[in-house]
């Protein structure tokens, strides 16, 4: 139980006389604070999880700058930009959904969640199209697939670091895509159910908390892409104009 300081007022519209909350908590505020803090601490572990592979990427980019620049130009920048745009929009719809959740307007929440999921799915679609495109060009450095770097890279003897870049590209965007899929799974719990099932007492209050927590996760996944996109796609495009 947090020290009985003056608890901040509940969002007005969701004040229900006996809010449903888990037994180990004493009141709704404590559960809310605990769940939000819990998600933030989990997001710190995710920062360190992605941080490890970013450190590896930073070290190799410093060691093989030219090879990484050449390899980065192989990535399709238009698809990357569209993907970033899609993800930023999904971040907006998620934020609006969280706001609607607090206001208690569950119909609007359902619509915005569906919109966010569509945008998330589009992002994954574009991503897997890019993977397939790489697979076609024999530039997927995994499963022992035939891997030939373009002629210029091979002549320059930079095929090794070229493949290293693509390994990091597939590694980082693959882990990010996995987190997107988990995010879509978490979001699916807010899809508008058929009206026959009566919502459990206090469900609206709890769903506001759940949306806030899932929203934090979704924004984090968007944050990772905000850093991934320039790091991987935009190393040095000046000579490709």
């Amino acid at each position: 139980m947090s020290t009985p300081a003056a608890a901040p007022p509940l969002p007005i519209h969701t004040a229900i006389d006996r809010p449903h909350f888990a037994l180990q908590f004493d009141d709704y505020h404590q559960q809310y604070d605990a769940c939000v803090l819990g998600m933030w601490v989990f997001l710190v572990t995710e920062v360190m999880f992605f941080g490890a592979i970013f450190t590896g990427y930073a070290v190799y980019r410093m060691l093989h700058h030219d090879a990484f620049a050449m390899a980065s130009n192989e990535l399709d920048i238009t698809l990357g930009t569209i993907n970033t745009f899609v993800l930023l929009t999904s971040s907006l719809t998620m934020a609006l959904a969280v706001r609607a959740g607090h206001v208690g307007n569950s119909k609007r929440v359902g619509q915005l969640i569906v919109l966010t999921m569509i945008l998330g799915a589009t992002f994954l679609g574009i991503k897997f199209f890019e993977y397939y495109h790489k697979y076609e060009d024999h530039m997927a450095p995994a499963f022992g697939l035939p891997f030939e770097a373009p002629k210029a890279v091979n002549d320059a003897g930079l095929a090794g670091p070229f493949q290293l870049f693509l390994s990091f590209y597939f590694g980082m965007t693959g882990v990010h895509a996995l987190h997107m899929i988990i995010g879509l799974g978490l979001l699916s719990q807010f899809l508008p159910r058929s009206s026959r099932i009566a919502p459990a007492p206090g469900a609206a209050v709890l769903s506001a908390l759940n949306i806030e927590v899932v929203g934090l996760y979704w924004h984090f996944v968007d944050l990772v892409w905000i850093f991934l996109f320039p790091m991987l796609y935009l190393i040095d495009r000046s000579d490709t104009i």
Partner: peptide, 28 residues
């Protein structure tokens, strides 16, 4: 999480042939 990622990278390199710590590819 950092050791989870380090061991995941070794597993990727071993299982799927994605060379990350492989000196022949310029890895360290």
């Amino acid at each position: 999480p950092v050791v989870a990622m380090a061991i995941l990278l070794v597993a990727l390199e071993r299982g799927f042939g994605i060379g990350i710590f492989d000196p022949k590819l310029g890895g360290d």
